[in-house]
Amino acid sequence: MTILRTNNLTMKFGGLTAVSDLTLEVPEQGIIGLIGPNGAGKTTVFNMITGVYKPTSGNILFNNTDITRMEPHVITKNGIARTFQNIRLFKDLSVLDNVMIANHLRLDSNFFSAVARTPGYREKEEGIRKKSLELLDQVGLLEFKDTKSTALPYGKQRKLEIARALATEPKLLLLDEPAAGMNPQESIELMAFIKEIRNRFDLSILMIEHHMQVIMGVCEHIYVLDYGIKIAEGNPGVIQNDPKVIEAYLGVEE
């Protein structure tokens, strides 16, 4: 079963074609990689899937529903969550609040019952708090729940961003360079962590990464973009030996 499919996705910014004619598939429970040199259009693909950019042409199917021109918050509600390349936490708020806010979209209390703190609302809020604490516990951030999110060390901030995305109860998680800025030890831990959340939360993952060890270690299938064009796809073994990929990354021998 395919959970996400893009058909001939194209994104043009004026005269520049950032992504051209991209077709990719994410199977259920799959961990799929999206790699390519800087400026290849990887983050643009994420921005199209999450509704931040409206594609010039092509469409995106999620669970067999066309989500191409939906608003970002609607797409999140449908079950796609993401993290950002340059961490975007709610800086001034606590770790727990960061995760609790991600539950706001599933809260079906109206504004007045929330401000009046009706018993019904309080019960729901307590449920969200419990759920958020549980999630923090699962990702190993429970002891930092009252810390301001920016006070966390870098690697933990990345983890919190993933936890916050998980709190929206996604079916598909988009990770934008989760290993960026991590040391080798943290990267190895991250690989295990990604596999673990896939199994525990029963979701599919599409990830952008420059760290080849991480990509080759966790991804089952990899797409390679260069100048917005898909130049290769396949399992890690195939990609490592693909001449086009080697050329894109290292250049070609004279």
Partner: peptide
């Protein structure tokens, strides 16, 4: 407050 802190992230969290 999430919107104040980071509008893009807030939207991505379904707000």
């Amino acid at each position: 407050m999430a919107i104040r802190e980071d509008q893009t992230a807030a939207e991505a969290m379904g707000i």
